[in-house]
């Protein structure tokens, strides 16, 4: 479904990604692991068209997306949930969802506002509150709901478990499981190995802008030296 090859990215003079290669198949949840500054967020932003100096190839369902503007990439069926949440603080919960609304898409589950309020009951209660009045966990739920309003087939989740309470992390894991059940593909970046193991089928480990490991979690657990080398802090 998604095939990234030889992805390079720069910010000014700094070379952040040096030839990242990864794939995500239909219905699969894939984790992108790595330490702070390894290039996880840049990989996700590059796929989404949010990094200007990039080269390589990002193919999605056979279509080259590299160099296309973010709105085209979104319309192709890729949803993006940013790391810093980026809620529209002055808009209400309902208005935030409205910004994300896109027409239904063939081959993708359709998410109505009612359906999302069922999945995220907290948001239903707070639909008239402004984004800035929500707690961190509620904001995280709102970004995911807002992205789902676009009826994506693939969701890019940037560090979903970062900076939220453990009880919300659990809820987050349930949401990702629900997405998988609905047939969505997910690429999530994560530092939390435990959380990633809970929700994903496979993992990539990225370090200094290159993929250093790929495999499933059974394999990763059998080789403790790998996580020692690339994930331990």
């Amino acid at each position: 479904m998604l095939e990234v090859t030889d992805l390079h990215a720069r910010y000014g003079g700094a070379h952040i990604l040096g030839g990242v290669k990864l794939t995500v198949a239909g219905g699969e949840v894939v984790a992108l692991l790595g330490r702070n500054g390894a290039g996880k967020t840049t990989t996700i932003k590059s796929i989404m068209g949010l990094v200007r100096q990039i080269s390589g190839s990002v193919r999605y369902e056979g279509r080259e997306l590299l160099g296309r503007p973010p709105h085209v990439i979104c319309r192709a069926g890729i949803g993006y949930v940013p790391e810093e949440r980026r809620i529209f603080a002055d808009l209400t919960v309902a208005e935030n969802l409205e910004v994300g609304r896109r027409p239904t898409r063939e081959g993708a589950p359709h998410w109505s506002v009612a359906h999302l309020y069922e999945l995220f009951p907290n948001l239903a209660e707070r639909r008239r509150n402004q984004g800035k009045q929500l707690s961190g966990g509620e904001q995280q739920m709102l970004t995911i709901a807002r992205t789902l309003m676009g009826n994506p087939r693939l969701v890019l989740l940037d560090e979903p478990s970062e900076g939220i309470a453990p009880v919300i992390v659990e809820q987050m894991a349930r949401v990702i499981a629900e997405l998988k059940r609905e047939g969505l593909s997910v690429l999530l970046s994560e530092q939390n190995l435990h959380f990633a193991r809970l929700v994903s089928d496979r993992a990539y480990i990225i370090e200094t802008g290159q993929v250093r490991y790929e495999g499933d979690f059974a394999d990763l657990d059998a080789r403790p030296e790998v996580s020692e080398q690339f994930l331990a802090v």
Binding site: G49, P69, Y80, F88, D90, L91, E95, V99, R101
Partner: peptide
């Protein structure tokens, strides 16, 4: 109106509006 909501959203974070599929 939807257009107005998009304008208010873009006033706060126009890149995010673009990433949500709106042609800026």
């Amino acid at each position: 109106t939807r257009w107005g909501i998009l304008v208010r959203a873009a006033t706060q974070d126009r890149d995010m509006v673009g990433a949500l599929g709106v042609n800026q």
